[in-house]
């Protein structure tokens, strides 16, 4: 099982790494790059807490091999805010009380950011559909959906 040389562009920065083929992208981000904002819950694709964007599209990083992500642009939750300036989705999540234990939040935010990049003015159904791969055991979802709606309208105005 030879390690393989891979290049991951994470939040705009290139990282050259030696990766064992059986390491997932989630493990590599958390353990090798120490970006622990990406959470791991079920580890088999069911919960979405490990969601990152790969070339702009949400994927479950627990089901992507690091070697398969080589050459791709990865966005993790650490890359969403600009310095101390939270992304409008993050701001709205705080304002609407859409964060309780917070375990689902990084994945939830990334799914929402990816939606708003493509659909600036989504309807309720589109938001729920876009977040349907992210499970939240605390909030009951309503506040999260409201936060995303609010973020969308604030982003449209700015």
């Amino acid at each position: 099982m030879d390690k393989m040389r891979i290049v991951l562009t994470v939040n705009g920065q290139d990282h050259e790494l030696l990766a064992a083929p059986n390491r997932t992208l989630a493990q590599t981000l958390r353990e090798d790059l120490e970006l622990t904002g990406t959470k791991q819950g079920c580890e088999v694709g069911d919960c979405g807490s490990c969601t990152v964007l790969m070339d702009g599209e949400p994927v479950n990083s627990c089901l992507v091999l690091a070697v398969q992500a080589s050459g791709k642009a990865i966005t993790t939750i650490e890359g969403v805010a600009e310095g101390n300036q939270l992304h409008p989705v993050q701001d709205a999540m705080v304002e609407h009380g859409a964060v309780q234990c917070g375990f689902c939040t990084p994945g939830m935010v990334l799914s929402a950011v990816s939606l708003l990049d493509k659909v600036p003015d989504p309807g309720d159904g589109e938001i729920r559909q876009a977040l349907s791969g992210n499970l939240c055991r605390c909030t009951g979802y309503q506040k999260i959906v409201e936060a995303v709606q609010d973020a969308a309208s604030k982003m449209e105005r700015s």
Partner: peptide, 9 residues
């Protein structure tokens, strides 16, 4: 099929 994340893979 599945969820957005699963469909992307």
């Amino acid at each position: 099929l599945g969820s957005p994340q699963v469909r992307n893979r």
